[in-house]
Amino acid sequence: MITEDPRHQDIHEYLAEMEDIPGTRVFTAKRARQGYHMNQFAMSLMKDENRARFKADERAYMDEWPLTEDQKLALLARDYNRCLDLGGNVYFLAKLFSTDGLPFAEAVSTMTDMEFPEYRAMMMAGGRSPEGMRSIRANEAAAAAKKEDR
């Protein structure tokens, strides 16, 4: 554990570290801005009448929002990794999980390389290990060192 006082860390270093985690998009300002309207759209699904209108015609409902075509396609396809890449945040997107009546864990599993039964089994067995999942840079360095060894 790092016990150095983390205060007054430079924001650029801080943000760079956030991009160094494998398989993870941290919801920084960059993503918050990119996904602003996608997240606001998702949040609108907290209202029953909006859910009904969305379900009746997804495309028409989304056309009322200033979304990019990419964002609309990712949402229509329920391609949540793509949604994250386009600035979506899971707590906002969760309103769409709920609208679809999809259990949270099942929706989350669609972002992994597993089908839901396999994902569920992994969770029952204690979850995904952090080993080898902590740092992109560290993984690259380890891979390079290994190559050197040969």
């Binding site: 205060r7 007054h8 860390q9 924001i11 801080y14 943000l15 920084t28 300002a29």
Partner: peptide, 8 residues
């Protein structure tokens, strides 16, 4: 904004 939050 981000920098200010880091600075508490």
């Amino acid at each position: 904004a981000q920098s200010l939050v880091l600075d508490e």
